Simulated assay, not measured.
Amino acid sequence: MSRKITTSDISLALGLSRNTVSKALNGHPSITVETRKRVVDHAIAMGYKKVKLSVGGGTAAAESAGKARSIAYITKSQINHGTGFWLNVLSGVEQMISHSGYEMKLSFIKNEDIEALELPALLASDIAGFIVAGSFDKPYTEKLMALPHPKAFINIHPDTRLSDLRADVVFMENEDSIYQITRHLMNLGHTEIGFIGEIHSCRSFMERWFGFQRAHFDGNLPIQPSFCITVPNAESYQNYEGIARSMKDLPKLPTAFVCANDKIALHVIKYLKEIGKAVPRDIAVTGFDQISEAEFLGFTLTTVALDEYQLGQRATEQLLTRMSKPDRAFETVRLATKVVLGESSSSR
């Protein structure tokens, strides 16, 4: 059972005295409308149960928020939340929402709804805010962004300009991790390195591509496009058959592949094994995400470790803060990651 929120918790969170918080919550005339609204909004976001909503002018938003005790979690229907990365993200979101006294409502968006720009009915209901997990295409992202609700995104479409955000966005660090991995491969003597990932699908993959490019620039090594698979074809990256077809079309295999995530890396390793190539003896392969499925390779995978649970928690924290401080500047947050060097990229 979660601990009850007190006026002391609210005063600590806002940097106000308990006396000021108490007066604001009780509608005392000595408290300004701005301070009163700030305290009431934050109290509601924290799950304080004794808010008096009839506190005078400027409280319509607080009254509305007081009635809306649900937070929506919006994601694509094809994202697998049953295992791995997204299950851990969802668990982090659910824990934070429950701890804050809200109810979480899920909405899985189908491809046909995205193409038709049809928003889920849930977003027309009485919700306090919503979290978007995963990257949608730019038109659908803009439609979500235009909604008046407080909102937070976990990842976003790469064509969305961060300078024009009307929401908070949370990522794991991407660019520098792939930069380190690519320079590691170069230091091992690799001069023919390919990149595999649909860089136009989400900003995280695009930033990983930026890290790959920067490593080549700093290493004075030209990128060879014939070794890279980055075309915007989602089907090619979702299953083994798609990856295998794309790799068969390469005119020549490089000596190393930097993959945008571990799932792609596992498909690449499987294909290489089927054509008689050994990892890392013949070709080095790296990933990103440190998913549990890589534990069954028989060797360790060079990858990037991150905490998906904290990713979900932080996105929810951003949303709760946005609900209590709607006028605060929007933020782009990147959580730290760690490069884990494994046997899949060991010395040739």
Results as ranks from 00 to 15, higher is better:
residue 46 M to N: 06
residue 11 S to K: 15
residue 73 Y to R: 01
residue 249 D to I: 14
residue 60 A to F: 12
residue 276 G to C: 03
residue 330 F to V: 09
residue 283 I to T: 07
residue 198 E to M: 11
residue 172 M to L: 13
residue 173 E to A: 12
residue 268 V to Y: 00
residue 110 K to F: 09
residue 134 G to I: 15
residue 290 Q to A: 10
residue 316 T to P: 08
residue 160 T to H: 01
residue 180 Q to K: 14
residue 82 G to L: 11
residue 210 F to T: 07
residue 36 R to T: 01
residue 51 V to I: 11
residue 142 E to Y: 11
residue 192 E to N: 14
residue 40 V to C: 00
residue 63 E to P: 10
residue 9 D to C: 04
residue 258 V to G: 03
residue 193 I to A: 12
residue 167 A to P: 00
residue 297 L to Y: 02
residue 150 P to R: 05
residue 322 R to H: 06
residue 212 F to H: 06
residue 201 S to P: 03
residue 328 R to G: 07
residue 343 E to Y: 01
residue 56 G to I: 05
residue 130 F to M: 08
residue 188 L to S: 12
residue 206 M to H: 11
residue 172 M to D: 13
residue 312 G to S: 07
residue 178 I to H: 00
residue 163 S to Y: 07
residue 314 R to E: 11
residue 76 K to E: 01
residue 149 H to W: 14
residue 187 N to R: 14
residue 206 M to P: 00
residue 260 A to L: 07
residue 124 A to N: 13
residue 310 Q to F: 02
residue 114 I to L: 12
residue 39 V to F: 04
residue 294 A to C: 04
residue 112 E to C: 02
residue 232 P to C: 15
residue 155 N to K: 08
residue 329 A to W: 13
residue 326 P to K: 12
residue 86 W to H: 14
residue 309 Y to L: 06
residue 64 S to V: 06
residue 210 F to A: 07
residue 86 W to I: 01
residue 79 I to P: 05
residue 274 E to Q: 11
residue 53 L to P: 02
residue 304 V to M: 06
residue 329 A to L: 14
residue 342 G to C: 08
residue 132 V to S: 11
residue 281 R to Q: 10
residue 296 F to R: 06
residue 315 A to M: 12
residue 162 L to K: 02
residue 180 Q to P: 00
residue 98 S to L: 13
residue 270 K to V: 00
residue 175 E to H: 10
residue 48 Y to N: 04
residue 40 V to H: 00
residue 81 H to E: 15
residue 114 I to G: 05
residue 216 H to I: 09
residue 231 V to C: 11
residue 222 P to R: 10
residue 34 E to N: 07
residue 102 Y to W: 11
residue 82 G to T: 14
residue 95 Q to N: 07
residue 236 S to N: 14
residue 9 D to T: 04
residue 148 P to A: 07
residue 127 I to E: 00
residue 248 K to N: 07
residue 282 D to H: 05
residue 208 R to E: 08
residue 327 D to I: 13
residue 216 H to F: 13
residue 75 T to G: 11
residue 313 Q to T: 06
residue 13 A to N: 08
residue 91 S to A: 14
residue 309 Y to A: 01
residue 246 S to P: 05
residue 186 M to F: 13
residue 308 E to V: 13
residue 55 V to R: 05
residue 1 M to D: 15
residue 158 P to Y: 11
residue 78 Q to D: 15
residue 97 I to R: 02
residue 142 E to M: 14
residue 3 R to F: 07
residue 249 D to K: 15
residue 165 L to Q: 02
residue 172 M to C: 10
residue 223 I to Y: 04
residue 106 L to R: 09
residue 175 E to K: 10
residue 253 L to H: 11
residue 209 W to V: 05
residue 81 H to K: 09
residue 60 A to H: 10
residue 305 A to S: 10
residue 160 T to Y: 03
residue 252 K to S: 12
residue 103 E to R: 12
residue 248 K to M: 09
residue 320 L to Q: 05
residue 333 V to E: 05
residue 54 S to H: 14
